[in-house]
Every structure is written in structure tokens, then in C-alpha cells.
Design a protein around this nucleic acid. Structure first.
Lengths: 109, 109
DNA sequence: TGACGGTATGTCCGATCCGACATAGGATGC
DNA sequence: GCATCCTATGTCGGATCGGACATACCGTCA
């Protein structure tokens, strides 16, 4: 599968932000990747604002610290489902998420 | 797992919209469910607006007609990842999705 | 009526993700 | 130094999801 191939490449040392630029990702795939990156940043900001540790957030989610770390680092193999659950668990409102989503992200070097 | 239990119950004949109201879903889980429902509606509207069949959209996504049908019906076992990919594939912009997301959904009977 | 295009539903099986755990890194305080 | 706290990274096994396929359903048109 195409998606699988992408993952393989990326996990072989590529940073996804940059990857979206030159890998042959379809437009919609690239957008999803950018979205995940943007939201993982949002998640970390809000977790810190709430003075939660990754472990504390993990417990709220019924997840584990390592998974939260992966969420925040924009690691591969994390889904939007978990990302959104985490965001909501930190008290981010849908409206706020929406705002973050539409804020375009300049691709990092 | 709690999430697994929820799925079990729901798949035993419950409509998710109603389910979110009385099942012991955590707040963040309920929000994700509502979000999926809202977005599946958005997807269908935009697909039709673009005069695409489910099959045509499926091909764009590298998926299948049945999967698209499930996406649009808000079926269980569907992730936000695929939902967003589908939305982007129908040409919906992030800003538009954001707008849909913050629009609250009255729970259907 | 039958054919046809579009959609819904159900079931496989392989791919992917999740939570758990171990462990390493880094910062701070003693 | 070395505890302690937080975070990062890697790896398992089992749960969930995905595409594919079959098939049923529903209009419409002739």
C-alpha cells in the first residue's frame, strides 16, 4: 500500500514535516500530516498550561506516558483519534482546536 | 479496556449519537463521537456537491465504496484519520472543517 | 418486469495502532 | 555524586482498523 510505503520511508529517519514536502504524498495525506503536527504542538502547550505531567494526562486518557510523549512529538503511528481525545482531556474546546487547525503551518526546516 | 467495552455495547444495536448521552463515556470520548458524526455529515454533503459517487471518492482515497459508505453513516470502527483524508479529498478546506467542528450538534432522537 | 447505477451491510484477513513495560536522557536539588 | 522527577525511545502482544469482496437494497428508466 501507498500509505504503508510512506510510513516506511519516514520511519527510516525522515522528519514528517519536511517529508510532506517532497515525498509523493497525496494532497490529502499531506494535509493530515500537517494537521497532526499542528495539533501535537497544541497538545503540549495546553498540557503544560494545565500543569499536567505526561503521566497525569496519560492516566486521564487511560493511556501511558510513553504514548503521550509520542503524541506530542508528532511520532508516526499515532492517530487523530487519540490526539483529539488527548486534546479534549486537557480541556481544549472544539472551537479552540478549530482555530488551531485553520492556522497554516510553515513547514519547518 | 473501557474503549473496547463501549464499542461492544454500541455495536450491539445502539446508535452512537444517542449512546453518547447515557453510556458512561468520558467527556473526551463523547466529544470525539460527536465530532465523527458531524464530520460524516459534512463528508456526504461535500461529496454530493462535487457530484462524486462513493465509488469515485473511494478510488481517490485508495479505498473502497463500502468503506466510504461506513464513513458517511458514522459507523463504528472508523477513525478520524480516514475521515479527514476523505474530507480533504473532496476538496474541503481545513478552515471549512474547523467551522463544522465548532458547530454544536443537537443529539438526534 | 428487468437491467442498471448507486448505496448499505456484513465478513474476511492483513496492516496498523494501542497500552504496557523497560530503559535512557536530562534537569534540579541535596 | 546520586536521588528524583519528567520526558524520550524502543519493543512486545493483543486489539482495532483497513481494503476487498459479496450481496442486499432502492430508485429510475425503458
Amino acid at each position: 500500500m501507498k500509505r504503508a510505503k510512506k510510513k516506511r520511508l519516514e520511519s527510516a529517519g525522515w522528519k514528517v514535516g519536511a517529508a510532506a514536502d517532497f515525498l509523493e504524498l497525496s494532497l490529502e495525506e499531506a494535509r493530515v500530516v500537517e494537521m497532526k503536527l499542528a495539533l501535537s504542538g497544541t497538545l503540549r502547550r495546553h498540557r503544560l498550561k494545565n500543569k499536567l505531567t505526561q503521566e497525569a494526562l496519560a492516566k486521564k486518557l487511560g493511556s501511558s506516558q510513553s504514548r503521550v510523549a509520542k503524541l506530542e512529538s508528532g511520532a508516526l503511528g499515532i492517530t487523530l483519534d487519540l490526539l483529539f481525545r488527548a486534546l479534549f482531556a486537557t480541556g481544549v474546546t472544539p472551537a479552540e482546536i478549530a482555530r488551531e487547525m485553520s492556522r497554516k503551518k510553515r513547514s519547518a526546516a
